[in-house]
């Protein structure tokens, strides 16, 4: 850092005297170049570990095994089983995002009505932090212990109430099971991302509604809901992206078959030599990026709308 030191107010640098006055422009450019060296380590790191991997995926998706450009990989995305995986991934993400958003928003509202520094709020937000970000493999085990074949709830229901959870087949290791487990980390994430928006609601707005003769219903319908709608939709989109990108829980839970895209990528990565389709995984990865990028772009747009009132 010290090599690029400059006195903040020192005008054109002295130690580099230039005989031609017209070269002030050149000197400014040189100075700017010297300042740029300060960000070289950061950009070098980014190029190696972010730009190159991204290019590997983007270029590889359009390349054949021997490196020639081809559209085969992309057209292979139209294969039945890959389309099915994408449909299931999107369905899983959409369902758990909507359920998670609604239940999470309820829980967040319940927290806002509590004391801001109270023990309840601290307990719940800490628990949400753990479950939303830390879960992964461990949540899969939690549900195997709960409603796996010899899980606590499974046995309890069978022994005490005579209910067989799996009379219609074992669904824990398939899409319905994934939905249940994903909901378990989507609700906490909703609480974390939606709480700030709810905190932005001012009690004065409610008082203003009341002083103008509005009812509770009118307050929610005409004031609070329109204000919260962008935040709610944005958070739902974030939850969608979160579920769509999730891998660990599904990988630990599903060992046979690949119902969703991340697991398809896993099998493409681990068995690419056998398949002879090295770049199919890259095409699927590119497909995932496109979906997530669209969702995140919408999210950023809604976030801007939200910050207008609830920032």
């Amino acid at each position: 850092m010290t090599t690029v030191a400059h006195q903040p107010d020192a005008a054109p640098v002295d130690q580099h005297r230039d005989p031609v006055p017209a070269s002030a422009k050149w000197r400014a450019g040189w100075r700017r170049g010297r300042q740029l060296t300060g960000v070289v380590p950061f950009f070098a790191f980014i190029v190696v570990f972010l730009v190159i991997p991204t290019l590997v995926v983007a270029v590889g998706a359009f390349g054949s095994n021997d490196g020639r450009p081809t559209l085969d990989n992309l057209s292979a995305l139209g294969d039945g089983y890959i389309v099915d995986a994408f449909v299931r991934s999107i369905l899983l993400s959409a369902v758990t995002a909507v359920i998670g958003a609604i239940l999470g928003a309820l829980l967040a509202y319940a927290l806002v009505t509590a004391k801001p520094d109270g023990i309840l709020r601290r307990l719940v937000t800490s628990a949400c932090g753990v479950l939303a970000q830390f879960g992964g493999v461990m949540l899969a085990f939690a549900f195997i212990a709960t409603i796996g074949l010899s899980g606590f709830v499974t046995l309890f229901l069978k022994d005490q109430l005579g209910i067989d959870l799996y009379s219609g087949g074992v669904w824990l290791f398939d899409l319905p099971g994934l939905m249940l487990v994903y909901t378990y980390f989507q609700i906490p994430l909703m609480v974390i991302v939606f709480l700030p928006a709810l905190d932005g609601i001012r009690p004065q707005w409610r008082e203003a509604t009341e002083s103008l003769g509005g009812s509770t219903w009118q307050y929610w319908r005409r004031v609070a809901m329109p204000l919260l709608a962008p935040a709610f939709l944005g958070s739902t989109l974030l939850l969608f992206a979160n579920a769509f990108s999730a891998y660990a829980t599904a990988a630990a839970l599903v060992s046979q078959g690949s119902p969703i895209v991340p697991l398809q990528i896993r099998s493409a990565l681990t068995s690419e030599v056998v398949l002879g389709q090295q770049n199919l995984g890259k095409a699927m990865a590119l497909g995932m990026v496109v979906v997530v990028a669209v969702v995140m772009w919408l999210y950023a747009y809604l976030q801007k709308r939200t910050s207008r009132w609830l920032g």
Binding site: P53, L55, V57, F244, P262, I265, V289, V292, A293
Partner: peptide, 12 residues
């Protein structure tokens, strides 16, 4: 944020 870890690992 827009690059899921599972995608990043393909490129990495």
């Amino acid at each position: 944020l827009t690059i899921p870890a599972i995608v990043l690992v393909v490129g990495l």
